[in-house]
Design a protein around this nucleic acid. Structure first.
Lengths: 240, 240
DNA sequence: GGTTGTGAAGGATTTCACAGCG
DNA sequence: CGCTGTGAAATCCTTCACAACC
């Protein structure tokens, strides 16, 4: 009950709220409300308020939320007000697409190194960075602090590549490979290794998304229903 | 209580189980168990059995599951034993990366059309397909049946592009843009339009994953804990 | 003996109603 | 008077224990 009482879904929603606030800010909207955010994020207003309440009190009763203020607070909560040094492991087609994707450079995410095991790629220059051999990652992290590793290798190499990242001291992995990274060095081992203990892995899985979509397109009735509180809190449940 | 009682998380896990079964089949492993699947998928064996039970009885008591049989059943459940005609809306860098990503062509997902509104791209040939103008999608669907649309346009065009897909009769959208697609034609409208009623949207969101990773790397204590039932069902809670 | 399939218990998340405050 | 913040209720999902069966 002590730690670990913030639902992971809440974190995903915070990212969504932040995105909405950025859009509002661009449109010079200065104020918003839990109802407005809820509608745009496709959740209930209760949910918005509860999610925010996990991290503090950011609104003004009777008034709502100030867009720039709430945006700043959410960025702080999510850790987006600092710089993040990122290496990409695997610079084939996928890794290069990631390196070139615009938007990652917002929020001070910066690519500081590109690594691969393919001799044809090592030495090549991509986006101003020279591709280095994966074996040199460990030495690299001695001179350059690296916070996150983006894993874009073929699925059969993903576990090994992840181990290379962890061995180099990297504690956050964004896994693009369609496979599950096991938090242990040796497949048989049951207890996670000490250094794996602190590693966070997030998955971005195109193929899985495709398959989920196939299922829900075939079975629309099993689709989770989007909440539709008519604009207001659904006070006046019925007239009485 | 009748429909809509299968957790969405269960569907994601089925995709994972299927992937594990494919790996096992490649390694000529013919049998598995809920314990084995659980360990590989990083869930509990209870969870595996419950997830499968939503869709049928696929195992043999005392024996476990037959890999090819369970694989076939999961493919059927997920709708992966039929062909899916896909169009890509938006063939900039991201859309082209998607078109070239290997693995999508498994399971009979096939790209039948590429669409964009950029005159520089329209007419170009990519992977054997000629890029067409988005305005021609509707006519296109009259001659070629299209099941799914992959949305890879810049976020500010995503809502419009989604509407084009839906207007053309497409009922499944895989959204790669970092934005939420509203299931309605006009922003103000509260009731989803008739045709949007049946549309399924799945999101594949690289930037959101990056931000969630930042949060959990900064707050490892809030990370959801992976279940670790020692290999067996955790019978013998303690010796007694 | 071993492993699945499942109703029931337990826990976690979401929904709610309203107190609290500008 | 309006909208947030929040303990309590309701719901949903996961875990469990064990019956069923090979």
């Amino acid at each position: 009950m002590s730690s670990q009482d913030i639902p992971t879904a809440a974190i995903s929603r915070l990212v969504t709220y932040l995105r909405i606030l950025e859009t509002l800010e661009q449109q010079d909207v200065s104020r918003t409300s839990s109802n407005d955010l809820a509608e745009r994020a496709q959740v209930t207003a209760f949910q918005v308020r509860k999610d925010l309440a996990y991290f503090g009190r950011f609104g003004t009763r009777g008034m709502g939320y100030t867009v720039p203020l709430l945006k700043r607070e959410l960025m702080r909560v999510l850790g987006l007000n600092r710089t993040w040094n990122v290496v990409i492991m695997g610079v084939g087609r996928l890794g290069q697409a990631i390196a070139n994707y615009p938007g990652a450079s917002d929020y001070q995410f910066g690519y500081v190194g590109l690594f691969d095991i393919n001799p044809d790629l090592v030495g090549q220059n991509i986006r101003g960075l020279t591709v280095q051999h994966a074996d040199d990652l460990r030495t690299f992290t001695h001179t350059t602090p690296v916070d996150l590793g983006f894993l874009a290798v073929p699925p059969e190499h993903a576990q090994n590549a992840a181990q290379t990242l962890v061995a180099a001291g990297i504690r956050g992995i964004l896994n693009f490979a369609p496979t599950i990274i096991q938090p242990r060095t040796h497949p048989g081992t049951t207890d996670p290794t000490e250094e794996w203990q602190q590693v966070s892995v997030e998955n971005v899985d195109f193929l899985a998304g495709m398959k989920r979509l196939a299922f829900y397109t075939l079975n629309p009735s099993l689709r989770p229903t989007e909440p539709t509180p008519s604009t207001t809190d659904l006070t006046h449940p019925l007239e009485e």
